[in-house]
Amino acid sequence: MRVRFPILALIAVLPVAAQHGRYLNESRHPSIGKPEAIAAGAKLFSASCSGCHGPDGSGGARGPNLVQRALWHPLADEAIFSAIRNGVPGTDMPPTKLNDDSTWNLVAYIHALTGPASEQKVPGDPAAGKQVYTSAGCAGCHAIRGEGALLAPDLSNIGGSRPLPVIREAILEPSKDLFYLGNESVSVTLKSGAKLDGIARNRSNYSLQLIDKSGKLHLLQMNDVKEMTIRSTSPMPGDYGKRLSKDQLRDLLAYLAAQDIR
């Protein structure tokens, strides 16, 4: 298990409203989504933030990964603004003296970096990407709007809930960051002799909630389990970077980025 205290700490200090706030009031600051503001924010980020948060926001020695977070919710712009302006008490994140305009530019950049892929302009042809999705066999494990299988994470809202870099990394390096809980691949032998294979949607020392390849849920008590094998790599093939051409990957990303339930 990978321990990620810095990220959890960031999540913990964000106000609850931050997890829902951006969309509820739709009160977007004019900087958000404005190319000039994003470019100006990128410069500021590179100069002032990347030392801790990494050049692409994916985290560094002192600062958490801003792109890939534990329970993914869009950060509220106001909460990002406040964290930049006031710092995050109890962490290494200091307050800043940037003026409002510069702070909003920075927020615009972080929003673009961490916001849902469906909100961004993604190059590629979604229709061609759908064909790639089909021919690459994605639906053998994933589902989109009820079409496909139940073993792997549902992708109906993947573009509406994840930033593009996260989707890209999940395709190219599925085992790099098995970050989201409920994706462990396990094999189980029960005391009854029965054998099960699937994904542990949840497990503890006492119980195991497993979904198998046919989509059946097995709600087990660990007292009924004789042996269990846990794979620390994703059951998703790790060679899509080789199997897909650059164009295919681009189109696939365009298709996935467009998957948004709203």
Binding site: E227, T229, T233
Partner: peptide, 10 residues
């Protein structure tokens, strides 16, 4: 709680 044999495959 019984302790099943758990193997972690890297």
């Amino acid at each position: 709680a019984a302790a099943p044999v758990i193997t972690v495959v890297k």
